[in-house]
């Protein structure tokens, strides 16, 4: 299973969702969809219809920039990051 690291702004929205969670999936999108199965609505908070990542959400797989279609290996680390915005 990949290890998904999530931002604090997201974990506060879903009961029982921690900052690091395991997820199955061949791609980043599959892994996030798996998390959405456990925490319904999570995918919507990270993706727009398409689906595509929201404009200020960045994802990295083992520290390399990634998209929803990026493939994921079983022991990969996925970082979901809130990009710099706001004030």
């Amino acid at each position: 299973m990949a290890e998904v690291h999530l931002p604090k702004t997201l974990t506060g929205l879903f009961a029982g969702l921690g900052p690091v969670v395991p997820a199955d999936g061949a791609t980043v999108g599959d892994a996030l969809t798996a998390l959405d199965g456990r925490w319904p609505g999570l995918m919507d908070r990270l993706c727009e219809p398409g689906p595509r990542l929201r404009p200020h959400i960045r994802v990295f797989v083992d520290q390399s920039p990634a998209e929803l279609a990026t493939t994921v290996a079983a022991d990969d680390r996925i970082d979901v990051v809130t990009a710099i915005t706001g004030g």
Binding site: T9, L10, L13, G41, D44, R45, R54, T82, T85
Partner: peptide, 20 residues
């Protein structure tokens, strides 16, 4: 939210607990 899009927050107990 710039990061997480649009939601409606709701509370059933006059604001003690909220969910979106």
């Amino acid at each position: 939210s710039d990061w997480h899009g649009t939601v409606v927050w709701r509370s059933e107990d006059l604001g003690e607990r909220w969910e979106q």
